[in-house]
Design a protein around this nucleic acid. Structure first.
Length: 424
RNA sequence: GGUGAGGUGGCUGAGCGGUCGAAAGCGGCGCUUUGCUAAAGCGUUGUACCUCAAAAGGGUACCGAGGGUUCGAAUCCCUCCCUCACCGCCA
C-alpha cells in the first residue's frame, strides 16, 4: 500500500513511476485522489459535529449538577447525534472505498529498476558456472525420477488431481536432505533465525503481504468456512509475525528462515508446465524473510540474494541472476532479483528464487513499525526471497548430476545428509 | 468442545455513566542541586487522523474488535476475537 500523502503531494511522480509497470494505473490514482478529497470533506464535517456534541453534553452535565432544566439542550444534542450517525456511516464507507482502492494499487518500482515492458527486458546481472555438457542425451527429471522411483506422479494425481506429486523412497529422502541442508546453511552460515510458522493464516495476514485482496481467485486456497487461507509461501506468516508492533531499532534487521509447504491454485497458468514438478499446487520451500530499516533494505536485498545464490554454488548448479524490469515486477515489490537455475534435461533455466524488497509497501498494510533513534515510529522495510524452492531445485539437481546409466551422482554437501553418494 | 477469570497508556495497576486521554507507581526524557556518580526535587512523557502554506495552535477518534442503550459510555447490554486456568478429547 502506498502512502496516501505521497499520492496527494506528488501525484505526477506516482503516476509516472506506476506507468513504468504498464497498464492503466493513472486512472486508479485519479480515483483514489478524488475519493480522498471526498473522505476528508466528510470527516471534517463529522469532527465538527462531534465537537458540538461533546461541548453540549458537557453543558448538560453541568446544568444537571446544578439541578437546572436541560431539556432544550438535550433535544439539540439528540438532533446532532442523528447527524453524527449519518456522517459516521458516510465516513466509514468513504474510508473503506479508499482503503480498497489503495490496497489494489501496486508498489512503486525503485529508481534503480530498469524500465521495460515485460520479462524479455529483464537484464541478466550475473551468471555462475556453465551449463554442463553430456556425452549422452540428457534425460529430463520426469524420466529420471520415474525410472529411479523417486516420485509417483500417477498415484498423487489419483488422490489429489493433476498438479500434485508424491515423493517416494530416495526421492522423499532427497527432498528432506535438501531441506535440512538449506536450513542449516542459512541458520549457521548466514545468521537467519529458524521459524516454523502456521500454514493456515487469517485473511489479514494475506492482505498484509499483498496476496489479497487483488489475487484472491488466481493464487490462493481458502478454507470453506472463509476464516483461514492456506499459505502460498512462508513469506505470508513470517513477514506478518511482527505486524502491528513497534520494534526497537536495535532489533533490526531481523532475519528469518522458514521451511513450509506452499499451496497455489496457479489459476492464471493453466496449460503451462503441466507435467512434472515444475509447476504444482503444493510444494515445499525454504524462505528467507528480513525486516529492516529503510536505510539498509537495499543493501540487505543484495545480501539476501547472495545468500540464496550460495545454495546453488555449494551444490554446483549453474545459474544466472536476473533483475526484473518495471514491467515484470511483482505487485508488492519495489525491486526483485530472480535466480534461475539451469536444468539440463529441460534445456532451460528454471526460477528457483525470487528475492524482493517490498520497502514499506507491506509494512504499511500490516502496520509494522520500528522506533528510530529520535523516538519516532517509522515503517519497517520488508524483504523476502526463496532460499530456495524445493521441486525446481530437485529438478536441476537430478538433471545436472545424472549419469549415463540414469543414476544420480550427488554433490558432496549432500552426502552426510542423505547417507549415500549415489542414487540408483 | 465445556467451565471459569480476564483484556486499560512503554510496564505495573486504579477507575462511581458526565469535568477521564484516563489516578498512582515504575520506566523514559528534560531541568535544578552536585567536582563526578548516586540520591532528591521540579517538569515532561501515547497513537492515528482532520484543520492550517508551514510551524504554532485548534479539533476528532482510540481504554481488545464491532454493534446497542443514553443528551453523554473505559464504565451498562449484546456479539465476536484473543489470553490465562482447569476439565474433556486428540497427534
Amino acid at each position: 500500500m502506498l502512502d496516501i500523502r505521497l499520492l496527494r503531494e506528488k501525484p505526477d511522480f506516482v503516476r509516472a513511476r506506476l506507468a513504468t509497470r504498464g497498464g492503466d494505473l493513472s486512472s486508479q490514482v485519479d480515483a483514489i485522489l478524488a475519493q480522498d478529497t471526498e473522505r476528508r470533506r466528510i470527516e471534517t464535517e463529522l469532527q465538527k459535529r462531534n465537537a458540538d456534541r461533546n461541548r453540549l453534553s458537557k453543558e448538560i452535565g453541568q446544568l444537571r449538577a446544578k439541578k437546572l432544566p436541560s431539556a432544550e439542550l438535550e433535544a439539540q444534542v439528540r438532533k446532532t447525534g442523528e447527524e453524527i450517525s449519518a456522517l459516521t456511516e458516510q465516513v466509514t464507507q468513504a474510508d473503506e472505498r479508499q482503503k480498497l482502492l489503495l490496497l489494489n494499487l501496486p508498489n512503486l518500482p525503485h529508481a534503480s529498476v530498469p524500465v521495460g515492458a515485460n520479462a524479455e527486458a529483464n537484464p541478466v546481472v550475473r551468471t555462475w558456472g556453465e551449463a554442463p555438457a553430456y556425452p549422452f542425451t540428457a534425460r529430463d527429471h520426469i524420466d529420471l525420477a520415474t525410472t529411479l522411483g523417486l516420485i509417483d506422479f500417477e498415484r498423487a494425481a489419483k488422490i489429489s488431481g493433476s498438479g500434485f506429486i508424491c515423493f517416494t523412497n530416495q526421492g522423499a529422502r532427497l527432498q528432506r536432505a535438501l531441506i535440512q541442508f538449506l536450513l542449516d546453511l542459512h541458520v549457521e552460515k548466514h545468521g537467519y533465525i529458524e521459524t516454523a510458522p502456521p500454514f493456515l493464516v487469517r485473511r489479514e495476514a494475506m492482505v498484509g503481504t499483498g496476496q489479497l485482496p487483488k489475487f484472491e481467485q488466481e493464487m490462493c486456497y481458502g478454507l470453506e468456512d472463509g476464516a483461514l487461507y492456506l499459505i502460498p509461501t512462508a513469506e505470508v506468516p513470517v513477514t506478518n509475525l511482527y505486524r502491528e508492533e513497534v520494534l526497537p531499532e536495535a532489533d533490526l534487521p531481523k532475519l528469518f528462515v522458514a521451511h513450509t509447504p506452499c499451496f497455489r491454485r496457479e489459476a492464471g497458468a493453466a496449460g503451462k508446465d503441466t507435467r512434472g514438478l515444475i509447476r504444482v499446487h503444493q510444494f515445499d520451500k525454504v524462505e528467507l524473510v528480513k525486516l529492516t530499516t529503510p536505510e539498509t533494505s537495499h543493501q540487505e536485498l543484495e545480501k539476501l540474494t547472495a545468500d540464496a545464490e550460495t545454495v546453488l554454488q555449494l551444490l554446483g548448479l549453474h545459474y544466472r541472476t536476473i533483475e526484473l524490469c518495471t514491467g515484470d515486477l511483482g505487485f508488492a515489490s519495489a525491486k526483485t532479483y530472480d535466480i534461475e537455475v539451469w536444468a539440463p534435461g529441460q534445456g532451460r533455466y528454471l526460477e528457483v528464487s525470487s528475492c524482493s524488497n517490498c520497502e514499506d509497501f507491506q509494512a504499511r498494510r500490516m502496520n509494522l513499525k520500528f522506533k528510530d533513534s529520535e523516538g519516532k515510529n517509522r515503517l519497517c522495510h520488508t524483504l523476502n526471497g526463496s532460499g530456495t524452492a524445493l521441486p525446481r531445485l530437485f529438478v536441476a539437481l537430478i538433471e545436472t548430476y545424472q549419469q549415463a546409466d540414469g543414476s544420480i551422482q550427488l554433490p558432496e554437501p549432500l552426502w552426510d545428509y542423505l547417507k549415500v553418494k549415489v542414487i540408483k
